[in-house]
């Protein structure tokens, strides 16, 4: 796990030896460590252990070897859930990233009204996913929703009843909630780009589009990686929203891994297979985070300021 130690420590000079200071410091970290181990690390190991058992959530836990794994891996539903998860991840990334960059660049301007826009954009992020899902369910209702009230036929669809529509609604609502957050990250990234680069480009006669593609976008490389990591790993955790909005339906069209895990475990009382799915979820999350870190490269800071 040494890869994970680099980012937070980057930029800090190695602390000088202060052994003379007694043993207080390590103790300060102990409460957080104990809580995180008890409800984070132990469950993480526990989920691996439980995937080799059978348990109905109430009775005794019994070791059952690879039974759960065989059941899960042999189940075509798993492949379907994996596919849906991947699709949600890729499509929501592809929708959110360009929009967030565009909005972030625009919001980076210092005009007062843009600051007001940023404040308003942020509101959806504050609402609970359950509340958002409930509101959208009402809004999209084919009989009582917005479309029916306005008598616009195009809007009167069985939004949550058709697989493709329901999937699109999930992507839309996710974007509705999270684009503001990512545009905020990009806004911060854009503001860190040295003005001198733009001045140089202007002397070269570069126009707005050229400056965007030759300066802004390359300079945002590491911001894009940060934002994408959050998006991609975050997309594995879309549970509340999908659970309330579609409950995985229609016809399992939105049954992502997290939902599959919940349904098997807490509704079908098969904690063993559900744990196996949880392990897969963790592995996918870790693999993606590592992959995106590799893409980022180690010398992130060195090259970013080049030519400033």
């Amino acid at each position: 796990m040494s890869t994970f130690t680099t980012p937070a420590r980057r930029g800090t000079p190695p602390p000088a030896a202060r052994k003379a200071r007694g043993g207080v410091l390590p103790w300060l970290a102990v409460p957080a460590l104990v809580l995180f181990v008890a409800f984070g690390v132990i469950p993480l190991i526990g989920v691996l252990f439980l995937s080799f058992t059978s348990w109905d959530g109430l009775g005794e836990i019994q070791l059952s070897g690879l039974t759960s794994w065989r059941a899960v891996l042999g189940d075509p539903n798993l492949l379907h859930s994996l596919w849906v998860t991947l699709l949600v991840m890729v499509v929501s990334w592809a929708v959110q990233t360009p929009a967030s960059i565009l909005l972030g660049v625009f919001l980076a301007g210092r005009q007062r009204y843009r600051a007001v826009l940023a404040v308003l954009y942020f509101i959806p992020l504050l609402l609970s996913q359950a509340a958002i899902a409930i509101a959208y369910k009402a809004l999209l209702d084919p009989n009582f929703g917005l479309g029916a009230g306005l008598h616009i036929d195009l809007l009167i669809q069985d939004w949550l009843g058709e697989p493709i529509l329901a999937f699109s609604v999930v992507i839309f609502v996710v974007s509705w909630q999270f684009i503001p957050f990512h545009s905020l990250i990009y806004q911060g990234g854009v503001r860190q780009i040295p003005q001198s680069l733009y001045e140089a480009a202007e002397i070269d006669g570069a126009g707005r589009v050229r400056k965007f593609f030759s300066i802004t976008l390359p300079q945002l490389k590491y911001t894009i990686i940060t934002s994408s990591t959050l998006m991609v790993v975050g997309s594995l955790t879309f549970f509340d929203l999908i659970f309330v909005l579609t409950a995985g339906g229609p016809a399992d069209a939105t049954r992502v891994l997290a939902l599959d895990m919940y349904k098997r475990g807490f509704q079908a009382s098969q904690m063993g297979p559900a744990s196996a799915i949880a392990v897969i979820l963790v592995l996918v999350g870790l693999a993606l985070a590592l992959l995106l870190r590799r893409l980022g490269g180690r010398d992130a800071n060195a090259s970013q300021m080049e030519g400033a």
Binding site: A32, F39, G40, L44, V233, L281, L286
Partner: peptide, 16 residues
């Protein structure tokens, strides 16, 4: 350990 915790979807630990 904490940094690793960032990369893990914590929902996955809900059963334990």
């Amino acid at each position: 350990l904490f940094l690793m915790g960032l990369a893990i979807p914590l929902q996955a630990t809900i059963i334990p």
